[in-house]
């Protein structure tokens, strides 16, 4: 019985913190359903008097957000597929296939983790410009092709694959690439899902690089489109909230569906450090 007040205290505190944390997201949904102008009244309303989808209609019919939603989907999906292709192969090689110079390359890559991506940004832009890739989706994708952090995430998981298993396959006459495809990849499925979720969310939410590379509304990703829209439509809070819903809901849904994998990757990265 002594525990009773403490139980109330802990759960009460959790409820309050969770309510405060979720409130901005709740208000985004509520305001996106309000008729124009309603959120700018006093006292500030928490729920639309008459819920309407007018803001969403306006966004898709006139602001071209459907196109930008498609751009974001294409970029995040391509980034995920490319990152999986490059990083999984490399991660496995660093874990299990001793090639000449492996140790040294690995040390250089660890060292590279301290260099912020922004240092490479300016010359990378010039490089894309000379290749004619500025203002293209391919240009946005370039930095997400391969990543040191992702390679180490895969390497960490691949280290747990037992050597005996690989050696048994070799004795049976399987080639190295067959072993990678048939034995290693299935065993690494959980980390592949983790990496896929990380990359997709990262590419979807990325702002600075697409902002630099893209300069044409039709090619914008959702965050860039939203930032530009918010400058033109400062007063239209309901419209902007509908834009935020369109941007945030896909990633929130993906996260909720694959939460287990996401959290595993997050703590794996931390333990490694």
């Amino acid at each position: 019985m002594r525990r009773r007040p403490a139980t109330w205290l802990v759960n009460g505190a959790l409820l309050v913190v969770a309510a405060l944390t979720l409130f901005p997201l709740f208000w985004m949904f509520a305001a996106s359903l309000m008729p124009a102008g309603q959120s700018s009244t006093y006292p500030p309303p928490l729920w639309p008097s008459r819920p309407t989808l007018a803001n969403y209609r306006e966004l898709f019919a006139h602001a071209g957000i459907g196109r930008q939603l498609l751009n974001s989907l294409v970029i995040a999906t391509s980034a995920t597929l490319l990152a999986l292709t490059f990083n999984v192969a490399a991660g496995y090689a660093f874990a299990k296939l001793d090639f000449p110079g492996r140790q040294r390359v690995q040390q250089i890559l660890v060292g590279a983790l301290v260099i912020p991506a922004q240092v490479a940004m300016l010359p990378l832009f010039l490089m894309l410009k000379s290749l004619g890739l500025v203002n293209t989706l391919a240009g946005v994708l370039v930095p997400s092709l391969a990543g040191v952090f992702s390679i180490f995430l895969v390497r960490q998981a691949a280290l747990t694959v037992p050597d005996e298993l690989l050696d048994a396959a070799r004795i049976d006459g399987a080639g190295e690439l067959t072993i990678f495809r048939r034995i290693v990849l299935p065993l690494l499925t959980p980390i592949l899902v983790t990496l896929a979720v990380f990359t997709f969310l990262g590419a979807w939410n990325d702002f600075l690089w697409p902002l630099i590379v893209l300069n044409d509304g039709d090619r914008y990703t959702l965050p860039v489109a939203l930032a530009s829209l918010s400058r033109e439509h400062v007063q239209d809070s309901e419209l902007m909230m509908a834009g935020s819903v369109v941007t945030v809901v896909p990633v929130l849904a993906l996260f909720l569906a694959l939460q287990r994998y996401y959290m595993q990757g997050l703590t794996a990265g931390a333990v490694k450090g």
Partner: peptide
């Protein structure tokens, strides 16, 4: 619930907070 803001798009939620 407490983790949800982390996966959201910073531009989108910054717009919410501005209001």
């Amino acid at each position: 619930a407490l983790f949800a803001p982390v996966v959201t798009t910073v531009v989108a939620v910054a717009v919410i907070w501005r209001y």
